[in-house]
Design a protein around this nucleic acid. Structure first.
Lengths: 343, 343
DNA sequence: ATGAAAGCGCTAACAC
DNA sequence: GTGTTAGCGCTTTCAT
């Protein structure tokens, strides 16, 4: 830390140095079309600005133009989460491309904090607000009153556009990957079964749909939470019962991790003995041995789309008004699926 | 998306409604001391403001006061990284507590982008800038010219305060954990050995120091990158040579993950056959079986301290001027260390 | 105990 | 082609 702010160079200073009016400087610097500024004047202004290290004062400009080139991203706890960071990163990168800055805030799931943060953002006249959650479900809205608001990874009763992963199609893809390899029997689902959790619900529905269409039935469900330890326990218990599955559809990579551990402890090999497919495509998927085939959560894209939407630039904009926009979950095929063993 | 910004309620509107001047409203709303506003007037103003849903315009206020209550966090790619998110989260939370908002930007390691971003932040008159990197090393600075700048997780040739993890002490703690368990022989270091990477360098130095003081020598170093696959290959190769280590000091959790896999493949058990200690304390540490003892990267705290520092509120502020501030790395003891087998 | 008025730095009618 | 000027919404000095 040194001293504080240096004396700022103002537009007027540049004007004086260049020997022109502030209007001229403003026109030149903003590259305003239709103003017949002479090349000579233009150059003088540009040079003066450069030499003096001029930097427009955003507050003054915003006050005048009512535009801040800033968008607010408020989340419950997204930055915390592992791949949740990608949501932010997609938004960050896109905002930058579109010449906007992102104010990121986290409510930590506290409605009181959320109210205050939204207020702060509104005070700052952000050009738009992105409301994101990691839980991917949401009812109440914190009394948002900003014309340009989009929901990211969540929905609400209010008629606001929402960007969501196409978990249903993702579920189908996961099941189809198994079917393509020839699996028909001994397929188990592993993970959280709560109906209230959108990703779990939709993924399961997608799996069931794809399997159903192929005339195949799930052999059963191995219930556990979203975490490795829980999955390890559940799968271990299941294996102890003597039933050996042919394929596991894990509701996320962490669950798959736990499943791998349980399988290994039981002397079972992936994918020779048991095929595994999963969701999220987190870093874990590439770290496991064999590497895990996983249906990727398109968080980066979703962040990108949210920014495009909130700035009203999305191509599908008109169509997506007050609608859910589903983003595809690409299947990343790796080494955890093989044809089933001959019985 | 609905319509755009609603018509804003201005200070003047509140004043009219309350039948007072704008001065009075300003005084009341800012709770300015020493102005003898009558209780009655005060109440009228407060009520008017509430009823009208008044929200101060931050741009106007900043223009006047030269204070934005905003701090800029610019990183190379920190949000991307797994636990890097904690750095941001610590900053976010702390900024909030201190009534500031955080503008987060990422340069993606592009100096050109970085220059522009710093410019944007300066334009916005941020009250301070935090410059963070994930690589934890840095030479050049992007021509920052803001009085209040701190470096987060990196250093530079410029005389700026820097917040860093105390990797040296962390290294000692890792080694000591092994020594405490009774290990003296067969201790290997696993990981990146490049001298240029601060965390690797300091961790190794710390390990060497602690070991040296106990009269113990490292049995050898198993070189690999920071990733599981590389670690798996390196450790597997080493094991194939016939030498069985008693303890592994892995330079981070991902390396430990790879080591676990290699050990398991060789039929070796952690911690009975081989003890393992690691660095970072990422989520992985709790997911592995047995859970991994790891020296935690105090990213959350570092983010917090950076904000406190940049706002000049840190207690150690005066002392830390232009200095490196080292943040302790707590050892998280779990189940991967046991006394060495009898020979 | 309260109000009038100046001005923060910028943009954009409108005038010349 | 370029300059004058009036605000944007707020804080704050100085009057009353």
């Amino acid at each position: 830390m040194t001293r504080d702010r240096l004396p700022r160079v103002r537009l007027r200073d540049v004007a004086e140095r260049a020997g022109v009016s502030t209007t001229t400087v403003s026109f030149v610097l903003n590259e305003r079309p239709g103003t017949g500024i002479s090349v000579d004047t233009r150059d003088r202004v540009l040079r003066a600005a450069r030499e003096m290290g001029y930097r427009p004062n955003a507050a003054a400009r915003s006050l005048r133009t009512q535009v801040t080139n800033t968008i607010g991203l408020i989340s419950d706890q997204i930055v915390t989460d592992n791949y949740g960071g990608d949501l932010v990163r997609g938004a960050l990168v896109t905002a930058l491309e579109l010449d906007h800055l992102l104010i990121v805030v986290e409510s930590q799931d506290d409605p009181e904090v959320e109210r205050r943060l939204v207020g702060d953002l509104l005070s700052r006249q952000v050009d738009g607000i992105i409301l994101a959650t990691i839980t991917s479900d949401r009812i109440g809205l914190p009394g948002i009153r900003h014309g340009r608001t989009v929901l990211l990874n969540c929905t609400s009763s209010h008629a606001l556009p929402a960007i969501l992963a196409d978990e249903l199609a993702g579920g189908r893809d996961a099941a189809n990957a198994l079917l393509r390899a020839g699996h028909r029997r001994g397929i188990y689902l592993v993970g959280e079964v709560a109906e209230a959790v959108r990703p779990a619900r939709e993924r399961r529905r997608g799996v069931a749909a794809a399997l159903g269409e192929a005339g195949v039935e799930l052999e059963g469900t191995i219930e556990c939470t979203w975490w490795p330890e829980s999955a390890y326990d559940a799968v271990s218990t299941h294996l102890a019962s003597g039933e050996v599955p042919r394929a596991l559809i894990c509701l996320n990579d962490r669950v798959a991790f736990g499943a791998y551990q349980a399988l290994a402890d039981a002397g079972l090999h992936v994918p020779e003995d048991v095929s595994v497919v999963s969701f999220d495509d987190s870093e874990l998927a590439r770290w496991l041995r064999p590497q895990l085939t996983s249906v990727a959560l398109p968080y980066f894209d979703m962040g990108r789309i949210a920014v495009e939407s909130v700035l009203g630039l999305s191509e599908e904009w008109a169509a997506s008004q007050q609608q859910e926009q589903l983003v595809a979950m690409p299947l990343r095929e790796r080494g955890s699926i093989a044809p089933p063993r001959r019985p």
